[in-house]
């Protein structure tokens, strides 16, 4: 069903939802940017429409809402393990089609890869409803269309802001009553980005010979292995499990997981000094092939959703879409 709501009505609706849900959306954090005095656009909790940055792209994806950077798995007391169970409130996330596709990639790894389901992810994930944000016309580093992640049907509510009205299409029956209460019926169809400035050609088959190509040496000279590209990526899921004990009571502690990155030193270190991919370019090769080839081979869809965040955040101005296209050219030859 479609609805039109005034800004005021939408705010009332958000306020009512706020009792039952934590609401996350792209938000501008003044003075938190990379350059002194600049703003950071990132996910944060919001209470009203004006806080939602409809016209900005976040530097970091919404994944940390359901896959926190740092997550306690369980606590150790002297003789037992106590699991960390999240609070009861639901979660609403305002996000674009690329990021919904991105979360589907996380679902694939955490819930489908192998016989075990990741309970920590699942507990947070099943509380989430997606509020699909209208995306138009996209940004200069985006290439979602080439990867088919410009669209989605997987949402509870689609939201488009136009002047002083908010147009919504509601799929989620649980929420329909609220929209009925605050809005008037209207014809609303989601629209999606149909063309990006940047296009990529994803190679179909990759031979072993690609691994030694000169391309990667060039990237070794440029990439500083800072890992920002993987931190910003909506589809990176790697983590490392660590134990710690508390300073004030060494008998108690916790097991936790923290984000890890294939771009950063130590990811593959093994006993006996064996470390794979010492060259930074080889790490970029590993990441690139995972994003556009390995994942697809295993699960049928590319991992990368073309959000372009890795390009936006790279301090060395390495463009991932250019990297994909260079690889495509090499393989085409």
């Amino acid at each position: 069903m479609g609805y039109a709501l005034s800004v005021q009505a939408f705010n009332s609706l958000l306020a009512e939802l706020g009792g039952r849900y934590k609401i996350y959306a792209p938000k501008v954090f003044q003075g938190k940017g990379r350059v002194a005095g600049s703003a950071l656009v990132a996910y944060g909790e919001v209470g009203e429409l004006a806080e939602i940055a409809f016209d900005r792209k976040t530097a970091f994806s919404p994944k940390e809402i359901i896959f926190p950077v740092n997550q306690t798995m369980f606590y150790f007391t002297k003789e037992e393990f106590k699991e960390n169970v999240p609070d009861e409130r639901g979660v609403l996330i305002f996000l674009r089609a690329c990021d919904i596709n991105g979360i589907e990639r996380l679902d694939t790894i955490f819930l489908q890869n192998g016989p075990y389901r990741d309970v920590y992810y699942e507990r947070l994930r099943r509380k989430v409803k997606f509020f699909l944000m209208d995306c138009h016309p996209g940004w200069e580093s985006c290439f979602c269309v080439s990867l088919g992640s410009n669209r989605t049907e997987n949402y509870a509510v689609y939201v488009r802001r136009e002047n002083n009205e908010v147009f919504c299409r509601v799929k989620d029956q649980e929420l329909a009553g609220l929209f009925e209460k605050y809005g008037r019926a209207a014809d609303v169809e989601p629209r999606f980005v149909e063309k990006n400035e940047v296009q990529v050609k994803v190679p179909g088959e990759v031979g072993v010979d690609v691994f030694e190509h000169r391309l990667w040496q060039e990237y070794t000279a440029r990439c500083s292995a800072c890992g920002r590209c993987t931190v910003s990526c909506p589809t990176c899921t790697c983590f490392t499990i660590q134990d710690l004990f508390y300073q004030d009571n060494a008998e108690c502690g916790e097991r936790r997981r923290v984000w890890a990155s294939c771009m950063i030193d130590g990811f593959t270190d093994m006993a006996g000094g064996v470390a794979l991919r010492a060259n930074h370019g080889d790490r970029l090769r590993y990441k690139t092939l995972h994003k556009i080839y390995d994942f697809k081979k295993r699960f049928g869809v590319p991992m990368c959703v073309g959000c372009g965040r890795c390009d936006d955040v790279c301090p060395e101005y390495i463009s991932f879409s250019k990297c994909i296209n260079k690889l495509g050219e090499i393989l085409g030859r």
């Binding site: 790894i109 890869n113 075990y116 990741d118 983590f239 490392t240 499990i241 995972h290 390995d294």
Partner: peptide, 21 residues
């Protein structure tokens, strides 16, 4: 094969080679 591992159950990504865990 021996690779660095953390989770042991296909989630943490450390042990991935090509499309294999």
């Amino acid at each position: 094969l021996e690779r660095r591992m953390s989770c042991g159950i296909g989630k943490c990504g450390h042990c991935k080679i090509s499309d294999q865990y």
